[in-house]
């Protein structure tokens, strides 16, 4: 179990006139290789939550354990190691690109951790492949000439090049067009399913999270108000209604059809799986 949080609270701008409590009494565990989607309104503390997991912010109350060790006790050196194992992709990561060439941008991390040029080179190639950037085509391209979707993949590769075992992402699809969004989500899913990297991502859009994640957590006003396996999402239909969160149309339709007496298995929440079952019903029923 890489992450265990026990009764964690965090306040923003502590001691200032406008202090705000960002997180209150979080209690949960993340398993190895999970793909966890975290959703919540702006200002609900989602981004704070991610930064607690790799000790960029320190819990004010409670404990954050990584592999059984209390993060508060980590030495500076241990923290450097931790941040390699727990990669973090900030919101709009392309804004932090500084190198002129794609290759140098991605090699920055591996070089920082003291890899020789041969090893660093291997890391760059591997991570570019992980995000679907062809090495021959992209490695010597200039970073400013890339599209926003490509830039974001470069930034993601820059983190993957450190070979993290767990990946934290803050709104990885924000600001991208439909195509850019799809590509990022597909690669994240691939990284999780094929390379068994734990993925914890924060996003606004329920449909996007449901399409790739296996577990969903909703944070509201600093508290966890829902924590469920994605396959059981419809069990929480009323709760979602209360929270004012809309389900994607295929699940909403599945739920309403269930209410009309249809048997639809929603263990697989994919659009294709749901559509297939409905089609079977139509053919057998009429």
């Amino acid at each position: 179990m890489p992450f265990i949080l026990k009764d964690v609270s965090f306040t923003y701008q502590k001691g200032m006139a406008f202090a705000q409590k960002a997180l209150k009494g979080l209690d949960f565990t993340v398993e190895d290789g999970e793909m966890l989607g975290v959703m919540g309104a702006a200002g609900s503390g989602k981004s704070t939550f991610l930064q607690l997991l790799n000790a960029l912010l320190k819990a004010e109350q409670g404990y954050v354990f990584y592999e059984g060790q209390d993060l508060a006790q980590f030495s500076k050196k241990q923290l450097i190691g931790l941040r390699q194992e727990v990669g973090m992709v900030f919101q709009y990561p392309e804004q932090q690109i500084f190198a002129d060439l794609v290759y140098d941008e991605i090699a920055f991390g591996p070089r920082n951790i003291g890899l020789d040029s041969e090893d660093a080179d291997r890391r760059v190639r591997e991570s570019m492949q992980q995000v679907g950037l062809d090495f021959a085509e992209y490695s010597s391209r200039r970073t400013i000439a890339l599209s926003s979707g490509e830039k974001r993949r470069v930034a993601l590769a820059g983190i993957l090049a450190l070979k993290p075992r767990h990946l934290l992402l803050d709104e990885p699809t924000a600001g991208l067009d439909g195509e850019g969004r799809r590509v990022i989500l597909d690669y994240l899913q691939h990284i999780n399913r094929q390379e068994h990297i734990t993925v914890i991502m924060v996003a606004h859009h329920l449909g996007q999270l449901l399409s790739v994640c296996r577990r969903l957590m909703i944070i509201e006003k600093g508290r966890i108000v829902l924590d469920t396996s994605v396959s059981r999402i419809l069990d929480h239909y009323d709760r979602l209604q209360e929270l004012g969160i809309e389900l994607p149309p295929h699940l909403e339709a599945a739920y309403r059809l269930q209410r009309r007496g249809w048997k639809i298995d929603t263990a697989d929440v994919g659009v294709a799986a749901i559509a297939r079952q409905i089609a079977d019903k139509i053919r057998s029923g009429s």
């Binding site: 930064q51 790799n54 960029l56 500076k76 450097i80 941040r83 390699q84 990669g87 973090m88 900030f90 990561p93 804004q95 932090q96 920055f108 991390g109 920082n112 951790i113 820059g158 983190i159 450190l162």
Partner: peptide, 16 residues
């Protein structure tokens, strides 16, 4: 601070 943190996550610390 945000950029510093992001680069910190890539093993870069300009203080050491």
């Amino acid at each position: 601070e945000r950029i510093r943190k992001a680069q910190l996550c890539r093993g870069a610390d300009f203080r050491i």
